[in-house]
């Protein structure tokens, strides 16, 4: 599967529609390679209305220029991280397992 196919798919939870896949979250903690360790998929970022990512403003350390940071913070409101283990299936929609946890999407 290509990540490109997942991005901006609708996300459905047990209680109904949750939003869209805005981004994918990786951690570089796999087996060590020559340059970097392999990246592991941690989970998907689900955003309420928007299908696009946040241009890096999901990191709390990046706060400038202020108007852009403010704008993307507003867009981020209501977005959350769903761990890869909590994903039930992916076809035309991404289905989330019942009893999943909404993790904070900020870094």
């Amino acid at each position: 599967m290509l990540l490109n196919d997942i991005l901006s798919l609708p996300v459905v939870g047990p209680e109904g529609r949750l939003g869209y896949v805005a981004d994918c979250r990786f951690a570089i903690d796999g087996s060590p390679g020559p340059l970097l360790a392999d990246a592991q998929l941690v989970g998907l970022i689900v955003a309420g209305k928007h299908r696009h990512g946040f241009l890096g403003y999901e990191r709390t350390s990046v706060r400038s220029p202020a108007p852009l940071a403010w704008w993307f913070e507003r867009r981020q409101r209501g977005s959350f991280l769903v761990l890869w283990e909590d994903i039930e299936s992916i076809d035309d929609v991404v289905r989330v397992r019942p009893g999943y946890t909404r993790w904070s999407a900020t870094l």
Binding site: L55, S61, V62, P65, L68
Partner: peptide, 30 residues
Amino acid sequence: LPILVVANDPQYVGEHVNGRLMNAVSTVYL
């Protein structure tokens, strides 16, 4: 827009991120 965002991103430019004045002016230009 992307260049303005990345010029503020320490992961790309380290300590050479935009200063306050630069950001003020470049936001007006945006």
